[in-house]
Each structure stands twice: as structure tokens, then as C-alpha cells.
Amino acid sequence: MKTSLSMIPIVSPPPASRASTATAPLSSTALASPVSPQRPRVEGIARVVAVDCVDGERVWLEPEQTTSCGGCAAASRCGAKGVGTLASRLEARRFPLSANVASPPLRIGERVVIGVEERSLVRASLTAYAIPLLTAFAAGGVAEGLVGSDAVTMFAMLGGLGAGLLLAGGVARRLSARGELAPRYLRRARADESCSTDSTG
């Protein structure tokens, strides 16, 4: 084993990108966004599926599917896309991008990188997931204290969940009125680029 070890070039020559980042200060924001200099952004890749012909001002994008396995490359081989995932769901996720931010004209089939501010992503997931859970547990706790029967607690929690989802809808409307939920066009995607939330990996 020893001899074979010595024969192998164990340390690979550092790729150019790594060498450049290695000298940079160890700050996560410097790592996070090689593109936008001002604010940390989260990036995602989407494909142009339609261009609005009437006014030519809006393009429709479809996000590339991400799964719990993180990298899309691995996702295709992973059971994570199994349970409760259908290709048709992607269609439901289409979203418009106004042309004033999509500077160059985009054609159907092109892949683009889009981004939102870092804080918006956490804020949006807090809105969508944390608010309903909080209200559900609050309702469940109250019901358990008052009645103490499993069935009642269950319906109270369901009610709480529903109320929380409605509340989350309200909060989301405020966020979206401030423009926090709208993704922005950043650049065209490279051909080999996969779901680039992993862009530093």
C-alpha cells in the first residue's frame, strides 16, 4: 500500500478559480456572489419557456428542478425526486420576468441565471414555513390545555395551520409589494452550469 501511495500525485494542482479564492479573505459574502458586487445574492438557474409577443416585455421562465439532493447532477440518480414529485409540477412553477431587468433579448430555450437578495430567501422561507407551523402549534397547545383530547387537538392544529397559511399569504403580499420576491436577471448560464446554488462548491 505504501509504495502505491507514493506513486500517486495526491495533491492535485490547484485549479485557477481555487487559487484565486484562496488568497481572498475568508468571508462568506465574498464567496457567495462572484457576480454582483454590491449585495450578496442567491442564484438559481431557469430556462426561458416563452416570450410574450404582444408587448415583448415579459419572458416566462421555468426553474430547473431542484431536489433535496442539492446538486441537480446527483438528483437524477436519487430517490429524492421520487415521492410526490411529478414533472408537471415544473409547469406550475413558471414565473414571469419583466423585460426592463432582463437587459439582453432572450430567446426560448435559453438558460439564464437569476438572483434575489440573500435575506429575501430566508425571509420568504420563514414566511412560508415558519408562520404556519407557529400558529399550528399555538392552536394545538391551546386546544390541548382546554380540552385535552387528541381529536380536538388535531383539528385545532389543522385550523391553526390553515390560519397560518392565510397569514403567510398576507405577509407575502407585503413582501412582494416591496419587490422582495421578484427574482432579477443576472446573466446567461454557462452550458455546464448546474443549479448554481452550489456555485462555490
Binding site: 438559481g44 429524492a80 434575489v116
Partner: peptide
Amino acid sequence: SLFQMLGIYLPLITTN
């Protein structure tokens, strides 16, 4: 809008 925004970046609903 919330759904769209999360759908781009997160596996919206994950099952593993």
C-alpha cells in the same frame, strides 16, 4: 409569488 420565489431556489417541498 411566494411559491414561485421559493420554487426557484429550494426544493419547494422535500421528501427524503
